[in-house]
Design a protein around this nucleic acid. Structure first.
Lengths: 341, 341
DNA sequence: GTTGGCACTTGGGCATAAAGAGTGCTAACA
DNA sequence: TGTTAGCACTCTTTATGCCCAAGTGCCAAC
């Protein structure tokens, strides 16, 4: 069977309607709301066709239709209208970023908050830990007799602060020297390269071997984690949506969003160049949720991903427009702070 | 009416039973489980007395009794038996702290996780930002032309890292000098004192006025926040408890624990010297939840609070024993790392 | 002060009935 | 050939009545 233009249009109506009402949609309601020129009987036969093609299904024999995962995928890919933010919403976004934030993390925190508020879904963000980050400086200074604070900086930010242990007999000057040596050795190099540096390099550092090892370990830990803290807002928003009136489903959803590793993985798959990526359905597993995400970056380097996670029946139009709106402002904010160089 | 010993005992049985079964408890079940020597009729009249005194209530005329908030308060204050952790639970706690953590925050994170797992409730923790913290060192070093990284350290930890702007023409040496001057001025002083330092001091810093102001501002911001990030684990645990099978209640609870400021306030009221503090019921507002919390400290300084938040019908015995167990291990861990001085 | 007995209240479970929503199918029509 | 009206059929939802089990409160007797 062919997916005629009319079928597409009808499918779009079904999904639009279902997204806004959360009720299975009937042939009659389509006829009344969207296609007064076509009888419900005709629409019925089209719906039957769409069902046969796997785009729709019926909860039970005598109920309206509900979109399938395939339908949602088609919807976000080509059916969905692009909507625009209202002035009010735009204003809300802007005012959320008004208070000048200290650092990127706070900015992202604000972003996540306003996204969750405007969309009424759970919003998440996560900084990317990239192997491609380039080290700018290694700083170490003594804090206690046998403890020192290690800082590792890239062009963009402070990627690691950690207390490491140092031999008590080592002088402050020696510690500084060690840090300087490492800065010289690492500066301009990518994290990924550094951890692969040949072992013989360590020979140069014979005197400061322990410190060197600590630094290498800190970098490795950073890369291994692959991602920073997950920032999340509006975990309870899901309860505002009627399909989650069942505690079992809520439990399920909460356990999904509690699994930080899983969320991070989701956020970081194939979101390379795509502006906004929409993942409908839990892909591999049977979880029925969707993730809409976008990335933020500075001078071409991907700094992280932010997005919205919610039910399959998500208001994709709104979510996409909110993410775009926030994205634009984020972009400007990051650019501004970069120009301070 | 007098609260006789027998009434107390019966009240304890009612609460014990209700905590473990989540069902209103009847005179008959008390007779069978706890007081075979007393007839159910006698117990009934005692229950009626307890109800009259406000400790019990009936969901409806012909159902068993349910404890009131007053009853819970009395219970945790004097009725409740102290229980001990099983070897298995103790083992679980210990193994949770096995992986040596980098810093205090990670340790607390582990603590919160294991508490939530063992108790099956939502667990929270929050570092205290104390005005009484004593500054040990101020470090500043240049990151970009007009940007420097400011670090403020106390005896215990790094309390603040922040990028501040610096005049481009300032040399690295000057920046270091400014940091040194401030360290000299601030070392050994409490944060609270520092922000109250007379304005004329700033005159000494005429050359480095901007930097000085940035540092003061950073300290003020730190104190103003009063508390650090809230660490939370097991937000969804509430769903494992039968009284939250209603999505409205879940929504309510989630909104309570989403309000970070409120949680922080709760964690930091009157938990000064009390070993373990139990707050039953939302005190002022009508929210029906309880918070059981304890503090962790290093050499007498309160570093923060951790605890459990859950329904009124909470297994207080278990929660208290888990918090105590975790507390002991935390204490040792913190002491150990202090001995590294 | 304690107890057994008994009347009374209430919620939960279950079957039945009726109403409502929607579909699929068929026959007729343009 | 596509569209439409009509109708029978299915399934869910809601209401209703009914009965049972669980508990209580009270009273009279011990």
């Amino acid at each position: 069977m062919k997916l005629s233009d009319r079928k597409k249009k009808i499918l779009q109506y079904v999904i639009d309607d279902y997204i806004s009402t959360a009720q299975p949609v009937s042939s009659k309601s389509i006829n009344e709301k969207y296609l007064p020129d076509l009888s419900s009987a005709t629409i019925r036969s089209e719906l039957a066709g769409l069902e046969e093609m796997g785009y729709l299904s019926q909860p039970h024999t005598s109920s309206g239709r509900v979109p399938s995962i395939e339908a949602y995928k088609l919807y976000v890919a080509e059916l969905m209208d692009k909507s625009k933010l209202t002035g009010k919403e735009l204003g809300k976004i802007k005012s959320a970023f008004k208070d000048h934030a200290d650092n990127l993390e706070e900015v992202v925190q604000n972003a996540v908050k306003v996204i969750s508020e405007l969309t009424d879904y759970t919003s998440v963000a996560c900084a990317a830990h990239s192997e491609n980050d380039v080290i700018k400086k290694v700083e170490i200074f003594r804090h206690k007799k046998n403890q020192a604070l290690l800082l590792i900086l890239t062009e963009n930010t402070l990627i690691r602060d950690k207390f490491i242990s140092v031999p008590p007999q080592m002088t402050d000057g020696q510690i500084a020297e060690a840090a300087e040596m490492m800065t010289k050795l690492f500066v301009g190099k990518k994290l990924g390269e550094i951890v692969k540096m040949p072992d013989k390099i360590t020979e140069e550092f014979d005197t400061y071997r322990d410190i060197f090892d600590s630094v290498m370990q800190a970098i490795e830990e950073y890369i291994d984690k692959k991602k920073g803290e997950i920032i999340m807002e509006g975990q309870g928003k899901i309860l505002n949506h009627p399909e989650y009136n069942d505690t079992e489903k809520v439990k399920n959803f909460l356990s999904v969003i509690s699994d930080k590793d899983r969320i991070a993985d989701l956020l970081f798959t194939d979101s390379d160049d795509i502006e906004i990526s929409i993942k409908v359905g839990g892909e591999d597993d049977d979880a029925d949720y969707s993730l809409v995400s976008a990335t933020y970056s500075a001078s071409g380097v991907n700094l992280g991903t932010y997005g919205v996670i919610g039910p399959l029946r998500m208001d994709y139009q709104k979510v996409v427009s909110v993410l775009e709106g926030v994205g634009k402002i984020l972009e400007n904010l990051i650019k501004d702070s970069d120009e301070d160089d």
